[in-house]
């Protein structure tokens, strides 16, 4: 709708836009700027809006406290394992659903759609009991298992639209040239799917990295917390007085990878609406 907008209307829209920009940026700005301030400069009355001469002390505090590093390792393990397993399983399923017609295809699609809508809170009690029974509470494998199931519906869904985007004619042409069907698929179609696999993998990464609900249920041992669970506990630890500088530093650290990945896939977040949308 590239319509000519009257000057006054545009001015009004611009003012609203700038206000929205400010509201969006302020919490992010506050988080990052306070993360560089020493404790005595983060005070209640007359806060420094534009602080100069910051310090890296808060980041030092976070890294010196060994629990952050432990949580980082747990988070990275669970997240990467989830991405790899989910991508593999979802890729196979997406190929089946988009390239074959088989009994149960419909049931599979319908189940994915329904599962997508089930809130984690409606199943985490019995997932907890199950992991407990299997000896998989506080284990990377256990949390990965529930994460893989949680991200599968949308990974299958997204990958499917990518597989369908590659014309079958390309594969058929390769088969006429003497390729077998698997050869045609892996030499022609698969390379064209790389962007789809990357985008889907990034979605899965963000989901697993940010996930809180299942992690707080499945990882009760303080030594086995993921970063989000660690952060909530760290914020909560008021015995030493709240160290907001360190809390903002760790929040910043947790946010950085997500922002980077988010920028990579942002245009797909919008087009992926009907492909089972993603929410952090």
């Amino acid at each position: 709708m590239a319509r000519r907008t009257p000057f006054v209307a545009r001015l009004g829209a611009d003012v609203v836009g700038l206000v929205v920009l400010l509201i969006c940026l302020f919490p992010v700005y506050w988080m990052v700027s306070r993360s560089f301030l020493p404790r005595n400069r983060i005070k209640g009355e007359s806060p420094e809006v534009v602080p100069l001469h910051g310090t890296l002390d808060n980041y030092r505090t976070v890294f010196d406290d060994g629990s952050f590093a432990k949580a980082l390792v747990t988070s990275l393990s669970v997240t990467l394992l989830t991405v790899v397993v989910a991508l593999l399983f979802a890729f196979l399923a997406a190929v089946a659903v988009s390239r074959f017609r088989f009994r149960g295809r419909w049931a599979f699609i319908a189940v994915l759609l329904v599962i997508q809508m089930i809130p984690a809170e409606a199943l985490f009690i019995s997932q907890y009991k199950m992991l407990d029974g299997m000896g998989l509470l506080n284990s990377v494998i256990g949390l990965t298992l529930v994460y893989v199931a949680a991200v599968l519906p949308f990974t299958v869904w997204t990958l499917r639209s990518f597989v369908e985007g590659v014309p079958r004619e390309l594969e058929e042409a390769a088969m006429i040239d003497g390729c077998s069907r698997p050869q045609a698929f892996f030499q022609v179609t698969f390379p064209l799917l790389a962007p789809g696999l990357i985008a889907t993998g990034v979605f899965a990464f963000i989901q697993a990295w940010n996930e809180f609900t299942l992690a707080v249920v499945a990882m009760t041992d303080p030594e086995k917390k993921t970063l989000p669970v660690w952060l909530v506990a760290f914020t909560d630890n008021r015995s030493k007085g709240v160290d907001w500088g360190a809390i903002m530093a760790s929040s910043t650290l947790i946010t950085i990878p997500v922002i980077v990945f988010f920028m990579i896939v942002q245009h797909r977040m919008v087009t992926g609406l009907t492909a089972g949308a993603v929410k952090g």
């Binding site: 988080m31 809180f212 952060l231 909530v232 947790i254 946010t255 920028m263 952090g280």
Partner: peptide
């Protein structure tokens, strides 16, 4: 893009 726990803390 902000992770929900980070937004909560802020």
């Amino acid at each position: 893009a902000m992770p929900v726990v980070a937004a909560m803390t802020v």
